[in-house]
Design a protein around this nucleic acid. Structure first.
Lengths: 229, 229
DNA sequence: CTCCAAGAAACTGTCGACAGTTTGAGCCTC
DNA sequence: GAGGCTCAAACTGTCGACAGTTTCTTGGAG
């Protein structure tokens, strides 16, 4: 079963319900397990089991699973059983395509409303990535960088759509990571360079150039290295 | 309150639970009410009220609302209250952009795997549209035409993403409809022509041309007539 | 007549329970 | 030893209930 901070399983439970619903906590936990591969693609997920593991009723678990379905990490069959999604090569290709489109559109908007605070965020992300050592750290920071650009666009709907596929990207990246060992210095250097360039383009305010730059960056990134299992 | 087929409110209720969950029924009903404007954008939605109206408990209602949230028709505030979404002009613009991107990508795939059954579906849709008289009918058929192209792509992920925004498109189209009265003959003719051309391009198997054609078609369609309230 | 406050009403998040269905396991038959 | 059948275990969909909050209402103070 799943490990959980002991505070939560034996305490009155109603304690931590300030704005942080149980469903949210469980969602995050399950998402983590799926993305990191602790739960294998295709493996079954049973509501009662998870409920018991978290010492809660099935209600919040149900909600979590629906949320994860929306994120594309869990799929339900015709009779309502859920399992961890198994991404196909086609899926990955589609996801990357959608992602590229969303991010390049967002970059266009971001270029138009660029300002110091955003630049600050992006630059410190790059700085952190320079220090990063593990492949996992780099991935996290890379996603964070792209997430920051999405936020910078200020477009509610674009952000929503991007959030809906981001977990799948993480899942896929995680799968790849478990196959490789470390990150090649070349790739890291290229990523850093691309990110720096991107910041400059955004700062220039040239929306068209920003869109193009993002498109190129994403296309050159992992997205066509051909999928998983 | 909401009207409902009387069979459902007084009968044993467990009757119709074959594959059709209550949540599904309620989702469809609410979706209909939202896109048709019966429930106004921004209006509050309370679980107990809807549950009572459908003569069910809150559980399926809850699930329905989450589903509608995923479809972008319902939004939840920080304290968990839900309301009908109010689309902004930016939202509409984003949605149309995402839609164009998804559909043009799908058209590319569809062109490569085009076959008689698909052509049949599309052509009969056009035929129906020629007969259509009301603006509503035309809208329905137009959406169905585009949905058919998405299906024809055979790309799971693209279809999922498209389904996630299609209801919002319907909502927005419905809003527009309620402002205008009838459909202009010009627009209808142009749409029909575009759809016929599209079928030919798909049949030719030229993926690049298909992508382009869809992009142009969508761009020329309602999506830039500038939004709602 | 306006503004604030206490109380009531309405809601959401979560729980435990039950019924009908589906999946699995074990046993019996060839 | 393989295959089919029966029964039990496990699951999902739904229900009604309760507790803690938030929101609306109504009465009172200024």
């Amino acid at each position: 079963m799943l490990a959980l901070p002991s505070s939560q399983r034996s305490s009155p439970r109603r304690v931590a319900s300030r704005r942080k619903t149980l469903a949210l906590v469980i969602t995050e936990h399950l998402r983590q397990e799926i993305v990191t591969g602790v739960r294998e693609p295709g493996s079954k997920i049973s509501e009662p089991t998870i409920a018991a593991a978290h010492d809660v009723s099935r209600a919040p678990v149900r909600e979590s699973l629906r949320q994860l379905e929306r994120e594309g990490l869990v799929v339900f069959d015709a009779v309502g059983r859920s399992r961890v999604v198994q991404l196909t090569n086609d899926d990955v290709e589609d996801i990357c395509g959608i992602r590229a489109s969303l991010e390049s559109t967002a970059a266009g908007h971001a270029a138009r409303r660029f300002h110091a605070a955003i630049e600050q965020t992006l630059r410190s992300n790059v700085a952190e990535m320079e220090e990063a050592t593990t492949l996992d750290e780099v991935s996290q920071l890379d996603l964070a960088f792209h997430a920051a650009i999405m936020e910078a666009s200020g477009r509610r709907r674009l952000i929503t759509a991007w959030r809906a596929i981001e977990p799948q990207l993480r899942l896929w990246l995680g799968t790849l990571q478990r196959l490789r060992e470390a990150i090649s210095a070349d790739v890291l250097a290229a990523t850093l360079a691309a990110h720096r360039d991107l910041i400059d383009v955004l700062a220039s305010g040239d929306a068209t150039a920003a869109r193009k730059a993002v498109e190129v960056h994403i296309a050159s990134w992992v997205c066509e290295s051909g999928g998983s299992p």
